[in-house]
Computed example of a mutant assay.
Amino acid sequence: MYSSPPADAPALREPRHVPVARLVRGEVTEGVHHGSVVVLGTDGEVAFQLGDTEVAFYPRSALKPVQAVAMVRAGLPLEGELLALAAASHSGEERHLAGTRRILERAGVTEDDLRNVTDLPYDPAVRDTWIRQGRPASRLAQNCSGKHAAMLYTCGLNGWPLDGYLDPGHPLQRAVAETVEDLTGRRVARVTVDGCGAPLFAVSLNGLARALARITTAAPGTPEARVADAMRAHPEMVSGSGRDVAALMRAVPGLLAKDGFEGVEVAALPDGRAVAVKISDGANRARVPVTAAALARAGVDPALLTPFAGEPLLGGGRPVGSVRAVHALDPVTQPARA
């Protein structure tokens, strides 16, 4: 049920991205990352933007909090770390595998019922250990297995067929699409298939930021608030113990954040301030400092964001430069309107 009728879908065209981060080595610009950034104020209005924030794009796994809200709206009873895992792009650590098994057990199904792709664990260190142990790729190890287990659980609770649960016409995926449109406030521009096999919905960067702001500002006990509370309480289940998104949520009180492949990140605070980032070439080394700069633009204390300001560029094993957000994102020289 829509809270209000969604507006027209964002335009389908090539995005007009602009420079958002630079690789500066020895005070010389060695490379430039293009992308787009939006910052929303507490009133939900755009406080700052760079690039093309209303064109349709694929948010990839940054949409998982919205998918989790759709499942909770449909009756998914998970809480705490298991609900966080339902919105996760996990690292494949043992706690992630154990949690996914618990969801499958509650659903009365097994790993064989999952229809995500098989893969090795996402975290490089976990993956290396997995390979040394001679363990094969599996659906359980793939980073979206928690979401897929929750999808099966939701289907079982509603009497929906388990077979074909990834079909865009399946009742589960229709419910997800409706929630995407409700929370973003716009019609879905295009539907394709994500890397894990689930339907993927094209939205705008503004719409993605608005959706996460809706989730973080929802009343206690609502599906939105339940998802936000679970993810914030268990950031290591949303990603992994060594991942930047978990560290960012631990560093900024009340922050909800989710990354996605191809350089996407969205983050929101309990008062509705939100940011969304898309890096054109998909580079994580640009995603992290640009997200940090956008959060500073939104009013987050820059001291909390120092660890995320940009990875060093090395020369002879020592730092000789860094990946830096562009000057226009600097909240000191360009005061935010939020």
Results as ranks from 00 to 15, higher is better:
7 A>M: 13
7 A>L: 15
9 A>N: 08
10 P>K: 00
11 A>L: 11
12 L>D: 14
14 E>V: 13
14 E>A: 15
15 P>N: 08
15 P>T: 02
16 R>I: 04
17 H>A: 14
18 V>Y: 00
18 V>A: 08
22 R>L: 14
26 G>C: 02
26 G>E: 05
29 T>D: 10
30 E>Y: 12
31 G>D: 12
33 H>G: 03
35 G>V: 01
36 S>C: 09
38 V>A: 01
39 V>P: 04
39 V>F: 03
40 L>W: 04
40 L>F: 10
42 T>D: 13
43 D>V: 13
44 G>M: 05
44 G>E: 07
46 V>K: 04
46 V>M: 03
47 A>I: 10
48 F>L: 08
50 L>T: 01
51 G>Y: 00
52 D>A: 04
53 T>P: 01
55 V>D: 00
57 F>N: 01
58 Y>G: 09
59 P>C: 02
61 S>F: 05
62 A>R: 04
63 L>H: 08
66 V>I: 15
66 V>R: 05
66 V>A: 06
67 Q>Y: 15
68 A>G: 11
69 V>Y: 13
70 A>R: 04
70 A>V: 04
72 V>F: 07
72 V>D: 06
73 R>S: 12
74 A>W: 09
74 A>K: 12
76 L>Q: 10
78 L>T: 07
78 L>Q: 04
81 E>S: 14
83 L>Q: 00
83 L>R: 02
84 A>M: 02
84 A>P: 09
84 A>S: 11
86 A>Q: 02
87 A>I: 07
88 A>I: 05
88 A>C: 09
92 G>K: 00
98 A>F: 01
99 G>L: 01
100 T>C: 09
101 R>P: 01
103 I>S: 00
103 I>E: 00
110 T>N: 12
112 D>K: 15
112 D>L: 14
114 L>Y: 06
115 R>I: 07
117 V>R: 01
121 P>T: 13
123 D>Y: 02
124 P>F: 03
125 A>Y: 15
126 V>M: 02
131 I>W: 02
132 R>E: 09
133 Q>R: 12
